[in-house]
Amino acid sequence: MNKILEIKNLSLSINSKNLLKNISLSINKGEFFTLVGPNGSGKSSLLKVIMGIISTAHKFKGEVLLEGKNKNIYNQKEIATIITYLPQINSSNHFFVDEFLKMSRYAHRNRFNSSKKEDENIVKQIVEVLNIGPFLGRTISSLSGGEQQKIYLAASIIQQPKLLLLDEPNTFLDPKYQYEINLLLKRINREMKVSILLATHDLNMALIQSDKILILKNGELIFNGISDDLKKSDILSTVFERKFCFSNNPNTNQIFILPDTFSDSGEKK
């Protein structure tokens, strides 16, 4: 099965406020999607609805399909073997790193039939690949923000999902860790073939790293396409109410984007 996630006409309203309006999209195996939009546009809500964190008890219309089947037919453990969600992390996690990483195998464990050996091997493998061995004997709360983000990312991968949903993993990180996390995500996507749907405010990351970009505004999906199409359209200016200019990095020839501070809608003239 190639299609990991398919969303059909999804709408969500909480306390009579429409958070998501008639959203449809699909993500295939190995694809990297970024989800951008202003604050309050519904990015986190969309990820949470997909994961099942915002329950269907709220006003919820539409369908979420995982590997071609309606999500409601799966139990929570089965869902977690297909998708997982990495929220914006808080630092009040006092578990040891190795304990925390092992907890990520929960979805694959059965009380009466757990393969501890396999779990240990996967943890060991990811620890080596992501080079986080030195952190194992420390508690998560004792790590810096960037280190914590790395550990949470490793934990999500140890869970072996087919699709990883991430909510602004780069927020509050310094440029060094932003770069490291971006690189890790790229490796997870390219080498481990994990599909990614990432909500971010980092437009450059969206342009450079993703196969497709989704733009949300006021709960509506107003763009679903590749970076070249985005460059040609004027959609970013409409969404963020500011002009942007595109350019190319002379060293790598990679495209990048900057808010146009000298344009009419900018503050300086």
């Binding site: 994961m51 099942g52 453990k77 869902i79 990520s104 929960y106 999500s156 869970q159």
Partner: peptide, 9 residues
């Protein structure tokens, strides 16, 4: 959020 993401009902 983490509990549900890890597969806990």
């Amino acid at each position: 959020e983490i509990s549900i993401s890890r597969g806990l009902n």
